[in-house]
């Protein structure tokens, strides 16, 4: 029994915003430099050192921002939904706080993915915007993110806003495969003949290596921003508790 308690202790401790705040405070001093240096090295390598593409020339380089941002935009929705589900099932406040922090980050990444896609589309497809299956799915994903954020903001009570946002995220998760499949089906129906992806099927290692590095950098950066946002949200949520008041008083003194 004792062993089992110890095994699960971290899970219940995670439920305490204060514990989360203190433990992540220790992670940040190495996580921030790691994320920033991975990003800096990866982007420098990708944008300046990697060879130009045989067919797209220099314009393909936006892939080093576009691909990682799209990856994390999709992953971010699952972070929102999973955190919301765990929060709803085990009634853990901390999960709701993480969910609330993850929604704007995901929305921003989706916007970045859409924007870089549009910029990339101009030289390769000759137009900023095409109603392509993947672009349309991304746009709907952005709407789903914005929906969760708007709903959370509409509630005055924090608890209710957390719960409602989590439920909406779950409803969205059930719908994501349906939306994805329907958009895919719709696109095969209306596929314009002129549109063709010009990237080669397999990437050369000289381009793949910096891309993988940037993806790792984006993951680390995502985690960093998520923790920072969650810490901010904790301070907001617990602003009337004693430990936050002492923390603020200490911060003001130094």
């Amino acid at each position: 029994m004792v062993k089992r308690d110890r095994k699960w202790r971290w899970f219940h401790q995670m439920g305490s915003p204060r514990w989360f705040y203190e433990i992540t405070g220790g992670w940040l001093p190495w996580l921030i430099p790691l994320a920033l240096s991975l990003l800096a090295v990866g982007l420098f390598w990708g944008l300046f050192l990697a060879p130009p593409d045989a067919r797209q020339g220099q314009s393909y380089r936006i892939i080093f921002v576009h691909v990682p941002a799209s990856f994390l935009a999709l992953l971010g929705y699952y972070v929102v939904a999973t955190a919301g589900a765990v929060g709803l099932i085990w009634r853990i406040k901390m999960c709701f706080i993480v969910m609330k922090a993850a929604a704007p980050i995901g929305a921003a990444l989706t916007l970045i993915a859409l924007f870089t896609g549009a910029v990339w589309g101009k030289p390769t497809w000759g137009t900023y915007w095409v109603w392509d299956a993947r672009i349309t799915s991304m746009l709907i994903l952005l709407f789903l993110y914005l929906g969760v954020m708007t709903l959370q903001r509409a509630f005055v009570s924090k608890d209710m806003s957390f719960k409602a946002g989590a439920i909406l995220a779950l409803v969205g998760t059930v719908n994501i495969p349906i939306i994805y499949k329907s958009v895919d089906w719709w696109y095969t129906l209306h596929q314009p003949a002129t549109l063709k992806l010009t990237s080669s099927p397999s990437m050369h290692t000289d381009m793949l290596q910096p891309l993988l590095l940037v993806i790792c950098g984006f993951y680390a950066f995502y985690l960093m921003v998520l923790i920072l946002f969650a810490r901010l949200e904790i301070l907001r949520y617990e602003k009337s508790s004693n430990w936050v008041k002492t923390l603020v008083a200490e911060g003001n003194d130094s």
Binding site: G147, T150, V171, G172, N175, I179, S182
Partner: peptide, 17 residues
């Protein structure tokens, strides 16, 4: 407005079919 914002993305598949 809020209902519209939240429901429209979920309505898209049925509109397609």
């Amino acid at each position: 407005f809020l209902i519209s914002l939240l429901a429209v993305p979920l309505y898209m598949p049925i509109l397609v079919f």
